[in-house]
Design a protein around this nucleic acid. Structure first.
Lengths: 314, 314
DNA sequence: CAAATGCCATCGATAAACCTGATGGGGAAC
DNA sequence: GTTCCCCATCAGGTTTATCGATGGCATTTG
């Protein structure tokens, strides 16, 4: 039993058929059949139930599958780890909240792109929950999300603390007046699952505003436009709204301290290999925020030098 | 790069020499040299510094080594998790009628648990029909059901013959009197689909009692309590009712021979692999009943020895 | 009811990978 | 300088993997 056999096995399990697995593996069906049979003979256990529409895992197969997946992933990581050198190259995929991506990421990316020209960068945006899921599923190497994050498989580095402010139409000069219009009020959020939405609803509920309607937007500009038009209110980092406020499109209202601060953290898997490209990215991000925004009290403990040669720890 | 390559690599790293690794791996030096070279070529990085006293890891090699060790360990664990050997281990799921589970199974399970401590056992209860369906769908490995079972994909081993008796409230001394109370009479059964229910309805219908109401119970105690209270009658194996009768809670009435005997059989798929754990369970069950209840005429043909390493057959 | 489809097992031939044993070169120890 | 140990290379044979084709089986389609 070697990793090749397990890869074939996993492909069959995933596709639910030997024929389908064969074409997924760019080989022929007889080949897959043979390797599965060899594997079953070696283990002394059938791994699949054969039926006319394909195959399904036996209980032994179900026990084996997670190992096959872990081993496949480790093989990939091993290849990356060994091929990785002191100079950052390859590709990294970074997740981010939309607000962070719009506000904080561009200068970092510019700096990183200059420092590591051989790295392809891809940014995925989504909610905190979606990004954490993406990190856990290895779809992104790391992600900027709203903290705090407490998950045994993740490590989180605080990068910047945002002040959340309530944005309303410009003619609203007092939050208290919102209650008069509670019926028509909407909260305007990026999308379901957005962390800031939870903060906003809690904040409004504390003021007796419950059961307000939601309006979801996919773009920051559209969202601000909605607020400017008086359709609803939103809660976003002050820096995101600064420009709109200076243009007189929205009015900003401070919120109580306990609701006002949210720390953006960079999360990554604790047990995964950190490529040079990713390490350099994290360093760049931290350098950037620490050097150019020193007034912000960021608990920016430099990422601890990783034990590069014992990447795993449970 | 597969796990075999990594195993060779790890051996070289551990022994500090290609020649030494070769004899540790029971192979020839040229072989090890070649595979290391292939691995280095694939990764595009040298893994060892060669010098006259042997080899030492390069930095790339040092990064790769922990992965090689982890993967080797996982391969072993995977084999351990899935493989079936001469010693019973793993998990078996056994289906059973509720009556059989309550009456016949506990001593068998005690014996089996002592003999095969490394096996996790799960008992599912349900009606004959449900259990047969579960066996066919691979949800349980085998099941105790009411015979006879005649299905092309199933093999049934008779394990014990039960005498079914009619139980009524203790003041009923003659079944014939039941007809006088036909209006209020209920039949009390485990649940819809119970095999004994079919027997009971047939038996009552033969006496002109049709269209009686049903009362379904999930527990044996509740069911007997109902009968004791005169709410209805039930049909169950004599052994199940023996205690209640001795306490005077119910009266038992023999039923005609043709309806009285039901053979409990153990069914399993005929075409499925029989794990060591399951084989030992079947043996334990048969040994138990044969040895300790020799008076019972059980057609206890011992299960045929299986061909362990050709797990499939169509 | 027959033809067609989709799926898996099997087979023989070919190609690739692997293992083997022998040889040669190079540096360190004696 | 000689010996010893170690690694790289090479030609060979053997095992293993792969391929394409064929057939059986059960369901689906016409």
């Amino acid at each position: 039993m070697d990793s090749g056999d397990l890869a074939v096995f996993a492909a069959v399990a995933k596709t639910g058929g030997i024929t389908r697995a064969a074409q997924a593996l760019n080989t022929v069906q007889s080949n897959v059949t043979h390797r599965i049979q060899m594997l079953e003979a070696e283990l002394g256990v059938p791994l699949f139930h054969r039926h006319t529409r394909g195959v399904t895992l036996t209980s032994a197969g179900e026990k084996l599958l997670p190992y096959a997946e872990r081993i496949a992933r480790l093989i990939g990581e091993a290849r990356e780890a060994a091929a990785d050198g002191p100079v950052a190259r390859g590709k990294i995929i970074i997740g981010s909240l939309e607000t962070t991506a719009a506000l904080r990421l561009p200068p970092v990316l510019a700096s990183y792109a200059a420092a590591c020209p051989e790295v392809d960068i891809e940014i995925m945006t989504g909610t905190t929950a979606a990004m954490i899921e993406a990190v856990l599923a290895h779809r992104v190497e790391a992600a900027f999300v709203a903290g705090p994050v407490d998950h045994p498989d993740l490590v989180a580095l605080p990068v910047v603390e945002e002040e959340l402010v309530l944005a309303t139409a410009p003619w609203i000069d007092d939050i208290a007046k919102l209650r008069d219009r509670a019926g028509q009020l909407k909260i305007v959020v990026f999308r379901a699952g957005c962390t800031y939405r939870v903060y906003l609803e809690r904040l409004l509920a504390a003021r007796g505003l419950v059961d307000v309607r939601r309006l979801e937007f996919g773009t920051l500009d559209g969202l601000i436009g909605c607020v400017a038009a008086g359709i609803g209110v939103t809660l976003l980092p002050r820096a995101v709204l600064a420009k709109a406020e200076s243009e007189g499109r929205v009015a900003l209202h401070a919120v109580p301290d306990k609701d006002a601060k949210v720390t953006t953290v960079l999360v990554r898997r604790g047990d995964s290999f950190v490529s040079t490209a990713l390490r350099r990215f994290i360093e760049t991000a931290q350098d950037f925020w620490r050097d150019r925004a020193p007034e912000q009290k960021v608990a920016a403990a430099r990422i601890a030098p990783q034990a590069r040669h014992s990447p795993r720890k449970r």
